[in-house]
């Protein structure tokens, strides 16, 4: 059986900062409904490749294909408009706003009050929040509460909900469990599985090998900006991944 076409293809991407070669012909694919974990020691180039994909930095060489078409995003907004959503460690939520307001931040829906006065459509925002969060099996009883009132894992769900609502096709998560306690880490793992079930491609960076083995379909290991190997969790061990990371 042939594999489906990749949503995202990173082909031989290179990037240097001055004399430092941060990425050296790095390559990997992300298929629909697939969770790809990027593993590597500090400085292996994981963050650089994420930034190259999401439009934070430009690449020096190589190609990035989205649905088979070459893309080069000048800004993270362009990447987002094309369906590549990055969820940062600090989540990028406005703590004082509701879930709905966060989902719609920067593109708020408006309605006309009294037939002429444009006002924020809070009902629409709240409904979208409820529906989206229900897709993540996250049922909210207070849709007007600021997200500051929620726990770390729940806030992660809000950030992921935003990506789902805007039909992101690729969701990039940089250390999504780093700041969380163990029960919350498990919730995030289930959230990643729901993204997978929705057919999204997920790129997942973590230092935690247990998380990687728990959720990834494929592990792409980097060492000093180069591909050091690619394994399926079922066909490898954490010892082998560590050996690939540090270079035997």
């Amino acid at each position: 059986m042939s594999e489906p076409a990749p949503i995202l293809s990173v082909r031989s991407v290179s990037k240097s900062f001055g004399a430092v070669r941060a990425l050296d012909r790095a390559s990997f694919d992300v298929l629909p409904g697939e969770v790809v974990a990027l593993a590597g020691d500090n400085g292996a180039g994981k963050s650089t490749i994420i930034k190259a994909i999401s439009g934070v930095i430009s690449r020096d060489g190589g190609d990035i294909l989205l649905d088979g078409k070459s893309v080069a995003f000048a800004t993270p907004h362009e990447a987002r408009d094309s369906g590549i959503e990055t969820i940062y460690q600090d989540l990028s939520l406005a703590d004082n706003l509701s879930i709905g307001a966060n989902i719609f931040l920067g593109r708020e829906p408006m309605r006309r009050a009294f037939g002429f006065l444009p006002v924020l459509d809070r009902r629409k925002m709240a409904e979208a929040a409820r529906e989206t969060m229900a897709r993540l099996d996250f049922h909210v009883d207070r849709l007007d509460a600021p997200v500051a009132a929620f726990s770390g894992g729940q806030r992660q769900a809000v950030a992921i909900g935003r990506a789902i609502f805007w039909n992101a096709r690729i969701v990039i998560m940089d250390e999504p469990t780093a700041a969380l306690g163990v029960p919350e880490q498990r919730k995030v793992m289930s959230l990643i599985r729901s993204l997978k079930a929705e057919g999204k491609g997920v790129i997942f960076i973590s230092h935690n090998l247990r998380d990687i083995f728990d959720v990834a379909d494929r592990i792409v290991v980097f060492r000093r900006g180069e591909n050091a190997g690619e394994r399926r969790p079922a066909e490898t061990t954490s010892d082998e991944i560590v050996r690939l990371m540090v270079g035997k």
Binding site: Y88, S92, A94, N96, L97, L105, G106, E108, L120
Partner: peptide
């Protein structure tokens, strides 16, 4: 009731979040 006002609140909570939201 306006986007402007909403963005003022967002910016006050987190400039990075506001900026990343476009």
């Amino acid at each position: 009731q306006t986007r402007f006002g909403q963005h003022v609140y967002a910016m006050g909570a987190s400039k990075a979040a506001a900026s990343r939201a476009g």
